[in-house]
C-alpha cells in the first residue's frame, strides 16, 4: 500500500467544473515523497478545490489522481488512512475539549486502542496545548485552535499532510509557531502539500513552489528558480510623484520591460538586463513576490 519512493501525489489532467464554472482547468502536479510543496495562488485559483479532490470530498470531472500509490476516488479511503488534513475553514467541535477531539480522531484514524492515549499526549505536545487539554475549543484563542487543527491532522502520524492556508488570518507570532511546526514535519520526512497566498510562507517552508492561477499550474520550481526565471536577479524600485511613475510605466511597457507596481514605487524586474538604460532607483535582489506578480498579474500579501 505504499507509493514507495517516487511520488506521493500525482495529478494528471485534472479538471473540475461546478456547473458552468471551471474551478480547476487541466492541472498536472507531482509531489515527490518527503517534499514540501507550496501551492501558491491568488483567491479563487482552485487551491482548496484541488485539496478537496485529494481528500475525496470533491470528485474530479476529468483526469486521474494517485495518492500514496492509491488511485482515487476508488481507493480514497486507503489514502486517507495515511494522510492528515488541515482544512482552510476551522471545523473543530467547539463544545468538545482538545483531549476529546484528539481521542475521537485517533479512533477515526484507527489508532489502536492501546496507543490512543500516547497519541493524544503526543499531539497535545505538538500543538503545545498540554496545559489546555481539558479546555473546550470555544474557549481557545484563534491561534490555539489552529494548532489544535494541525495536531488533529497529525494524530495518526500520517505520511502525507495537506495544509490548506494553514496560517491565514493569524498574527505574526502564531504564524511563526505554525511555521516551526510545519518545518518539523518536513524534517521528519512527511510529504507536505500546503496551499497559501502568503509569499513568505511559501518561501520559508516549501522545497518546491507551484504557482497556481485560474485552475492551472503556471510555473513550478524552487523559490530561487522561480525568481531567477520570472523576475531575474535584480529589481529597481523607482519612487516619485504619480505623474512621473505613470510616464515611466508607459515607457516600460513600450520598451518591453517587465514591471509592476510595488506599494508607492514602480518596480522594474530583470533590472540586470537593462544595463545603461536603467532608470535611477533603488536596486534590490528580486524576490518571489516579484516572480509571483509577474506570473499571475496579481498583487498579494
Amino acid at each position: 500500500m505504499t507509493g514507495g519512493p517516487g511520488n506521493a501525489i500525482e495529478l494528471r489532467g485534472i479538471v473540475k467544473r461546478f456547473g458552468s464554472l471551471t474551478a480547476v482547468a487541466g492541472l498536472d502536479l507531482s509531489v515527490p515523497s518527503g517534499v514540501c510543496l507550496g501551492l501558491l495562488g491568488p483567491n479563487g485559483a482552485g487551491k482548496s478545490t484541488t485539496m478537496r479532490m485529494l481528500t475525496g470530498q470533491t470528485l474530479a470531472t476529468e483526469g486521474s489522481i494517485t495518492l500514496l500509490g492509491h488511485a482515487l476516488p476508488a481507493q480514497s479511503k486507503q489514502a486517507r488512512m495515511a494522510m492528515g488534513v488541515v482544512p482552510q475553514l476551522d471545523n473543530l467541535d467547539v463544545e468538545l475539549t482538545c483531549r476529546q477531539i484528539l481521542s475521537i480522531f485517533a479512533r477515526l484514524y484507527r489508532v489502536p486502542r492501546s496507543e490512543r492515549e500516547a497519541a493524544v499526549t503526543r499531539a497535545l505536545g505538538i500543538a503545545n496545548l498540554g496545559a489546555r487539554a481539558d479546555t473546550v475549543v470555544r474557549d481557545l484563542s484563534g491561534g490555539m485552535r489552529r494548532r489544535l487543527l494541525v495536531a488533529r491532522a497529525l494524530i495518526h502520524r500520517p505520511r502525507l499532510v495537506l495544509l490548506d492556508e494553514p496560517t491565514v488570518g493569524l498574527d505574526p507570532q502564531v504564524r511563526q509557531e505554525l511555521w516551526t511546526l510545519i518545518a518539523g514535519l518536513r524534517a521528519d520526512g512527511v510529504t507536505v502539500l500546503m496551499s497559501t497566498h502568503y509569499i513568505e510562507e511559501a518561501e520559508r517552508l516549501a522545497d518546491t513552489v507551484a504557482v497556481m492561477s485560474a485552475g492551472q499550474i503556471i510555473a513550478q520550481g524552487t523559490p530561487a528558480e522561480l525568481v531567477r526565471a520570472h523576475a531575474g536577479r535584480e529589481v529597481i524600485e523607482v519612487y516619485g510623484p504619480p505623474a512621473e511613475l505613470t510616464a515611466l510605466t508607459a515607457e516600460a511597457s513600450r520598451r518591453g520591460w517587465s514591471h509592476r507596481r510595488s506599494g508607492p514605487a514602480l518596480a522594474i524586474l530583470n533590472a540586470e538586463r537593462l544595463d545603461g538604460d536603467a532608470p535611477a532607483g533603488v536596486r534590490r535582489p528580486a524576490n518571489l513576490e516579484d516572480a509571483f506578480v509577474a506570473l499571475t498579474g496579481e498583487e498579494i500579501e
Binding site: 500500500m1 486507503q78 488512512m81 495515511a82 484507527r110 489508532v111 496507543e115 500516547a118 503526543r122 505536545g125 505538538i126 503545545n128 496545548l129 496545559a131 489546555r132 484563542s141 484563534g142 491561534g143 490555539m144 495518526h156 502520524r157 500520517p158 505520511r159 493569524l170 498574527d171 507570532q173 502564531v174 509557531e177 516551526t180 511546526l181 518545518a183 518539523g184 514535519l185 518536513r186 524534517a187 521528519d188 520526512g189
Partner: peptide, 25 residues
C-alpha cells in the same frame, strides 16, 4: 488572540518529539 500564555512559551520543534515515527496504518 492577545494574552495567550501558551504562545509565549517555547517548545521543542515538532519534528523532534519523542516516539516512533510513522506508525502509519
Amino acid at each position: 488572540e492577545g494574552g495567550d500564555p501558551d504562545t509565549l512559551t517555547r517548545r521543542p520543534p515538532a519534528g523532534h518529539l519523542p516516539g516512533p515515527t510513522h506508525a502509519a496504518v
